[in-house]
Every structure is written in structure tokens, then in C-alpha cells.
Design a binder for these strands. Structure first.
Lengths: 129, 129
DNA sequence: CCGTATCCCTCCCGATACTG
DNA sequence: CAGTATCGGGAGGGATACGG
């Protein structure tokens, strides 16, 4: 068993770090949840209402996977009524940096992309006419 | 019709820039293709062989969408046999920066994530036992 | 060489209803 | 409050074979 400090090619390998992180961060709700939790610990329904449009089932499963990956902590308080708090781990917080970089690029360039998309779609229409 | 220079909330909106870019870059082959093309213009089968494991159909559709988004250029040469070259646009090249940031984070932290995943899976086994 | 055309299958996600 | 149970649609992607 060898320890590897750097990734050498094989980018299509399912174990490629970039692939794993892209799958993790590319799903529909992860970035939103991490963003909400960046404002401090939150309870289940706080997160749900802060995001809006997410069903309990999906929020549960996404939170579970985030906990499994060590990006989020889940703490249960023995109270009545029951209280559960979710918070970012250091690892989860550190993820905000590259995501912010992507966000900046997105805000700067999304207009170009959608513009190209629309123009391309129009061209397709014209071809059929 | 108003022009917006900055994104204000509504992150769950399908038009959220980060969402759009995440969908674009999060698909299975985009990053690999852009990476290959970063080494200079390439022909269809060059890309296909460089990546490996991608079927012609999927490569075609991914390339088409990249062209539609203005990240890749497609140039046809009127030769026999026919030659088609794909290359990155400036926009496509600029995408490499945030992707590189994500890649660096991935290489630095993927071991932690997969370690957490494995430990979590084992714990699940133990619970059932 | 550069793709298209079909078929199919899996996984993500959503709607709805219910529970400790 | 904090979830679970069940059902199902739809998009992305793969296998295989064929066309310009």
C-alpha cells in the first residue's frame, strides 16, 4: 500500500480527487447548505427554510452524506423538544475557498455563457426554418 | 429588461451563476476535455483516445454543449480525409483557473474525505452487527 | 475520419404522506 | 421538531451498430 502525495494522470479514474470533489460539490444542494452553515450552526428546519424548495427527505440525505464526508457535524441535544444542530467542520469551512473562486468566475462569466447558449439556440431555430 | 452586474441571493434560482457553472463543470467529461484541449487544438479521435472510456456519442454531445456555451471552438477543414479541430476559446481557457483551485483543494483534502467515508461505512456495519 | 441512431438503465431528485 | 416511507419521473450517460 503506497501513499501518494500527488495525483499523476488517470483523471478518468473514479478515484481521481477532482472527480470526487466535483461529484460532492456538484450535486444540487451541497453548496447551498454549506453556505447557510457558514453563517453558524443551524437546526434542521432552519436550514430547510433558509434554502427553500428542498424537501425533508433530500435535505436529510444530503446532510447525512455531508456528515459522512466529514464536512458537517451533527450534534443532538437531549432536550424536550428535541434539538439537532448542524455545523461546518474545519474541512467543510476550508471548502468555501475554492467554491468562492468558482463563484467569482461564475458571476463574471455566466452572462457570456448564457448569451452564447441563447445565440446558439436561435441559430438552431434558423437552421430548421 | 434589467442588466445585473452582481448576483444578490436567490441561490436556489436555476439562473444562479454558481448553479449554472457547477452544472457545466460538474458533468462527467467537461473538465477532462477542457484539460486535454489546454494542451492545444485536438481532433475528435485525439480527444477520445487521450481520455479513454468515453463513447463517441457522449464525446459528441459534450463537445456540442461546450461549443454552444462558447468554451470550445470547432473548426472544419475542407480536406480529404476530413479534419475537424477543437480548441479552447479564451473563455474556456479562463475556466482553468477556478478549476485548478478546486483541483488543488481536492488533492489536498480528498484523503480526509474518503477516510471519513470509509470510517462512516464501517460504523454503519458495526451498528447492524 | 467523424460522427449518428437506438436502446436501455441507473441514479438523483421531487411529491406526498406518515412517525418517534 | 426532526425526520422516515414509498412511489415515480426524467436526465445523463453507456453499449452497440450504422451512416456521410
Amino acid at each position: 500500500m503506497s501513499m501518494r502525495t500527488h495525483w499523476e494522470g488517470d483523471a478518468f479514474d473514479p478515484e481521481c480527487p477532482t472527480r470526487i470533489v466535483l461529484d460532492r460539490v456538484g450535486d444540487k444542494w451541497t453548496v447551498l447548505i454549506v453556505d447557510v452553515l457558514d453563517g453558524g450552526p443551524k437546526r434542521f428546519n432552519e436550514i430547510r427554510l433558509a434554502i427553500g424548495g428542498i424537501t425533508p427527505k433530500v435535505l436529510t440525505s444530503t446532510l447525512r452524506s455531508l456528515v459522512a464526508d466529514g464536512l458537517v457535524d451533527r450534534e443532538v441535544f437531549a432536550e424536550v423538544p428535541p434539538r439537532v444542530e448542524y455545523s461546518l467542520t474545519d474541512l467543510g469551512r476550508s471548502l468555501q475557498e475554492p467554491v468562492a473562486a468558482l463563484r467569482r468566475w461564475a458571476e463574471a462569466n455566466v452572462a457570456a455563457i448564457t448569451g452564447n447558449r441563447d445565440r446558439h439556440a436561435e441559430a438552431g431555430q434558423a437552421d430548421r426554418a
